[in-house]
Amino acid sequence: MSHADVSGVVRVIDADTIDVGGTRVRLHAIDAPEQDQTCLTEHGLPFACGIWASAQVDAAFGGHIATCARIDTDKYGRMVAQCHVGDLDIGQEAVAQGWAFAYRRYGMDYDLDEKSAYVADRGLHGFRVQSPAQFRVTRAKGRIPPDPACRIKGNISKNGHIYHMPGQEFYERTGINETRGERWFCSEAEAHAAGWRAARR
Rank of each mutant, 00 (worst) to 15 (best):
T179N: 06
G181W: 07
Q82K: 13
Y118M: 11
I65Q: 12
K153F: 06
A55P: 01
A140W: 01
M79N: 07
E182H: 07
I144R: 04
V137W: 04
S187I: 04
G181L: 02
M79H: 12
F185H: 09
Y110G: 04
D109S: 14
V80A: 12
A66D: 07
A140L: 03
T174S: 06
H161V: 02
A117T: 02
N159S: 13
N159Q: 10
A69H: 11
G77V: 15
N177C: 00
G86I: 10
G86V: 09
F47Y: 15
V85Y: 05
V129T: 14
D74M: 11
G126V: 03
N159K: 12
E169C: 06
A53H: 08
Q82R: 15
N177V: 08
R122T: 04
P145R: 07
E114R: 01
R183K: 15
K75R: 15
E182G: 09
A53R: 11
C150H: 12
A81N: 10
S116T: 13
Q134P: 00
R136M: 12
G167W: 07
A149G: 02
G126W: 03
K75S: 15
V57Y: 13
A69Q: 08
R70I: 01
F185E: 08
C150W: 08
Q134S: 14
F185N: 11
G63T: 10
G91F: 04
Y171K: 12
A59V: 08
C83M: 06
I51F: 02
Y106G: 01
P166K: 08
I152Q: 10
G167L: 06
E114H: 01
G167Q: 10
D72N: 13
G160L: 10
F135A: 05
S54H: 09
C186S: 04
C186F: 04
Q168D: 12
S157D: 12
P148N: 06
F101K: 01
V85T: 05
V85W: 03
F61R: 08
G107A: 11
P132V: 11
V129Y: 11
V85K: 03
K115W: 11
Q130H: 00
P166V: 11
Q56Y: 00
K153S: 06
W52F: 10
Q97P: 01
G167A: 05
R173P: 02
A94V: 09
I156W: 01
A48K: 14
T179Y: 03
A55S: 15
S54W: 10
Y103G: 01
